[in-house]
Design a protein around this nucleic acid. Sequence first.
DNA 1: TCGATTTGACCGAT
DNA 2: ATCGGTCAAATCGA
Length: 328
Amino acid sequence: MECSSWPVESVCLSNRQRVLKEELVLGHQLANQLGRVVSNGDFRSAEGLVTKILSSFSNSLSILNGNHESEEEEEELNISPIRANNITIAPPPSILELSSWDAHNAVESAASMDLRGSFKRRKKMTSHAWSRDSPDFNDDGHAWRKYGQKQIQNAIHPRSYFRCSHKYDQGCTATKQVQKLDHYPQLFRTTYYGNHTCTKSFLKAPDFFLDTTNATPTEVSNSKFMIIYNSNNSLTKIKQEQPLFSSTKNELIKSNHTTGNKLSSSDYLVSSGTGMVGPSEPISGLPSQIELDRKGMIDLGQRWDAYYLMKKFCLMNFGDECKRTWLL
DNA sequence: TCGATTTGACCGAT
DNA sequence: ATCGGTCAAATCGA
């Protein structure tokens, strides 16, 4: 409990209120910063700030709706709210990360008591854990193998258990648990335990996200495509196994950009099924291959310039159509 | 056929 | 005794 004497005498804030306050202060500061960068014409920075602001509001709403860890747990797990004085221009991992915590030094202890006096079991905590809320639970760029599912007491939706696919071949001990939020069933809360030690560990949460919210389950599950570059990063061909979006869009983009299986008019393309967008400028330093998983994810690493150019290209060429495929 | 998923059993922590 | 996390046999599906 934090008490202050100003501006109102003896105002004590619970940790929940304190975190909420910090989120709102952060959002306010980010909005101010957004105003400055927009007036300077720095739209690339603006995009990252908009993402952070939205994330801040999402966090605040999450706290208000009770999707926040109890105070005891928060204290023991050393939750670190986003620091308002540590704003960076670089875009955050994802707008969809509505909450996270760092559980270094997690303390193993007996059951704790909640506000109604009933005991609640402490979550399993290993050396490192964090969580994120997302409409797409399979969006972190890692290969996972499901090994269990349980109905959890007082929860509407079951919890699924995943381990890294490289547990046995590479000894990677990373696991995650995924559960729909009771009050926001369109969102999945994914809690990660441990860090990847497998050779895929260079993969990070995708920075580039194709929003499949409006796609049908069949469209999403059938989506699979690959982008292939030649040595100087100009696109040479695209391998596509299943379309993601409607034939109307596919035909439109095919006629603009492809001849059979080959693409010619863009140096860099991103596919949403057979639909493709991309900037005309070559983008140096990109890997020779980028594969999008069946959920429509792509990892561009820190290449936010590439992301920005692709979005710009998409908006210029397809206007409102891009709303369906973008992203962060 | 083989890798992934499902699901009831098992087990340790509470 | 209960709960949550994991195991592993059965099943699925590409």
